[in-house]
Design a binder for these strands. Structure first.
Ligand code: ZN
Ligand code: ZN
Ligand code: ZN
Ligand code: ZN
Lengths: 147, 147
DNA sequence: CAGGGAGTGATACACTGTAACAAAGCCGCC
DNA sequence: GGCGGCTTTGTTACAGTGTATCACTCCCTG
C-alpha cells in the first residue's frame, strides 16, 4: 500500500505526512485516469471546504520530492509511483491512448543504451523522462475481440 | 538549411508554405534558448502588425505535422528539427539546464532496448518522447575551467 | 508568554493552449 | 472576369495549468 510507504518515508526523513498530503495522495491513487491538479482540487472540495489548486500543487511537489508521485509531462497528470524505486532512477511511462491508463515500468536495456548515447554526445544527465503513448495489452485484446 | 527542406517538403505534399509559416519556422530556428509559442508571437509582432498566439500555434502544428519542428513537453518550448529524420522516429532531446540549449540526437541502442521493454510489457507503442535534462559538454567544460 | 518554522488558506496573477466565428486570399471552373 | 468552395489568417473569448505573495494557524522551544 502506497499510504504505508508514505508514512514510513516521512517518518524516516522527519517530515510531516499531513492530512492534506494524505488526501492528495489518496486522490492520485484512486483517480482513473490519472488526474490533473485541478481534478484533485475539485475532488477534495466539498460544500464548506474548498481545497485550492495551489494547495494541491504544494502537496504534489512534496509527494514528488519523496518519489511517491510522478508527473506525466505530456499529459499534465499525476500518477502514484508503482515501484518504490529510487529517486532519479529511469522509469518508462506507458500511456494508453484508449483507456487513458498510465503504467510504469523500469528498463535496464533503455538505461544502459541511454547511458552510451549520452556519453557519445558528451552530455551529463541529471534526470530524464520517457513517456510512450500507445495501446495497453488489455485495450488491444478488447479491440481484437471486437474487430 | 531548414527553410529549403521546408519548401521541398511542402512542394512534395502539395501544401502551402505561407509567409507566416516561414516566419514562425525562422523564429524557432533563430531563437536561443528555444522559445515558447508566446515568445514567437511577440517576436513576430511589431507596431502595426500583431501576430496572435493562436496563429503561432496553428503554424507550429503545421510544422510539427511535417516533422520540421519538435515540441519539448517538459519545457513547453519548440525546437527546429536538426536531423530530417522520419516522423515517429525516436529521438532523444538533450536539455542543458545551464545554457538552456536543447540538442537532438538519435539512439539505436535506446530504440532497441525500448522495443524489448515494450514487448515484455505487452504494450504497443504509437510514439514516444525522451527528454534528458543535464549539462551539455560546453557548459561542463566552462564550469571546469572556472571551478 | 515570545519567537520561529512548517503548513495551509486565500487572492491574484502569469503562462499555455483551444474554440468559434469572421474576414481574406487562393484556385479551379464556367 | 465573376462565382463557389477551400485554405489560411485575424480576432475575441475562454479553458487549463502553474506560481507569487501575504496572512493565518499550529506546534515546538526557550
Ligand atoms: Zn515510480
Ligand atoms: Zn488501455
Ligand atoms: Zn528532429
Ligand atoms: Zn549548456
Amino acid at each position: 500500500m502506497i499510504l504505508t510507504r508514505a508514512e514510513e518515508l516521512c517518518r524516516e526523513r522527519g517530515v510531516q505526512f499531513t492530512a492534506l498530503r494524505r488526501e492528495v495522495l489518496e486522490a492520485v491513487a484512486a483517480s482513473e485516469p490519472p488526474p490533473g491538479a485541478y481534478d484533485i482540487a475539485e475532488r477534495l472540495s466539498r460544500p464548506g471546504r474548498r481545497v485550492a489548486p495551489v494547495s494541491v500543487y504544494r502537496a504534489l511537489d512534496f509527494l514528488m520530492e519523496l518519489g511517491l508521485v510522478h508527473r506525466i509531462a505530456s499529459r499534465n497528470a499525476f500518477v502514484p509511483c508503482a515501484h518504490a524505486h529510487g529517486i532519479g532512477e529511469n522509469v518508462v511511462f506507458l500511456i494508453c491512448r484508449t483507456c487513458g491508463g498510465i503504467d510504469e515500468t523500469t528498463s535496464p536495456e533503455v538505461e544502459s543504451g541511454l547511458g552510451k548515447t549520452l556519453k557519445r554526445a558528451g552530455f551529463t544527465p541529471a534526470h530524464s523522462i520517457l513517456e510512450v503513448e500507445g495501446d495497453c495489452g488489455a485495450c488491444r485484446d478488447k479491440a481484437r475481440g471486437a474487430g
